[in-house]
Simulated scan of single mutants.
Amino acid sequence: MKIQKFKMNESGLNRFFGPLEAKIMDILWSGEERTIKDVQLELEKEKATNFNTVMTVMNRLVEKGLLQKRAEGRTTMFKPVLTREEFINTQSKEMTHELMDEFGSVVVSHMIDALDDADDDLVAQLEQKIKELKKER
């Protein structure tokens, strides 16, 4: 699944989702399958949220391929298609490939510049990855 909009001026999950979508995904990533009512009750701890609104957003997340639903008797259960880590990995990988395709060496240069702020473990991982790529060529 490809997220169509990446919001530079947001942070965390809000970069990929609308505010309510982000909260719903966060709730569903934190545990077991849940019903719409379960999610609504969790959301109400912060702010009153209409059941129909939650239902609409969750069904849209199903349509986008982010959630899956299954019937359990008369109840519909929802869960994420990917874990949070898988989602972030997939989206960041896709975004990186798109940036490389469109802007090439400029992106690489900026990524290298960003390493000034990176911790030593991340730099070591990058060095290892570069060594592996060189061996494969």
Rank of each mutant, 00 (worst) to 15 (best):
K2C: 00
K2R: 10
K2L: 08
I3T: 09
K5P: 00
K5Q: 12
F6R: 09
F6C: 05
F6L: 09
F6I: 14
M8L: 11
M8I: 12
M8Q: 07
M8G: 05
M8Y: 09
N9P: 01
E10A: 14
G12E: 07
F17M: 12
F17L: 09
G18C: 03
P19Q: 13
P19C: 08
L20T: 13
A22L: 10
K23T: 09
I24T: 05
I24L: 05
M25D: 04
D26H: 13
D26N: 15
I27M: 03
I27E: 06
L28V: 06
S30R: 10
G31K: 07
G31L: 08
R34L: 08
K37P: 07
D38N: 06
V39P: 13
V39E: 03
Q40L: 06
Q40R: 15
L41E: 10
L41A: 12
L41R: 14
E42D: 10
E42M: 12
L43R: 06
L43F: 11
L43V: 09
E44V: 14
K45P: 01
K45N: 09
K45E: 08
E46M: 10
K47M: 11
A48R: 13
T49R: 12
T49W: 11
N50M: 07
N50R: 09
N52P: 06
T53P: 01
T53G: 05
T53D: 08
V54T: 15
V54N: 03
M55S: 13
M55K: 10
V57Q: 01
M58Y: 01
N59E: 07
R60P: 03
L61W: 02
L61E: 00
L61Q: 02
V62Y: 00
E63F: 00
E63R: 13
K64T: 00
G65H: 05
G65Q: 03
L67T: 02
L67P: 02
Q68N: 08
R70Y: 09
A71C: 07
A71D: 14
A71E: 14
E72N: 14
E72C: 10
E72Q: 13
G73N: 06
R74S: 09
R74K: 12
R74M: 05
M77L: 15
F78N: 01
F78Y: 15
F78L: 01
F78V: 02
K79P: 03
T83M: 01
T83S: 11
R84L: 12
E86L: 02
E86F: 04
F87I: 05
I88A: 05
I88T: 08
N89D: 10
N89A: 13
K93L: 11
E94V: 08
E94I: 13
M95Q: 12
M95S: 10
T96L: 15
H97P: 00
L99G: 10
M100E: 11
M100V: 15
M100S: 08
F103L: 14
V106Y: 09
V107K: 03
V107P: 07
V108N: 11
V108Y: 09
D113I: 00
A114C: 06
L115G: 09
L115H: 04
D116T: 01
D119F: 00
D121F: 00
L122M: 10
V123C: 04
V123G: 02
Q125W: 00
L126E: 05
Q128D: 14
Q128V: 09
K129D: 15
K129R: 11
K131A: 12
E132M: 06
E132C: 02
K134I: 15
K135E: 13
K135C: 04
E136K: 06
E136W: 00
E136G: 02
R137L: 14
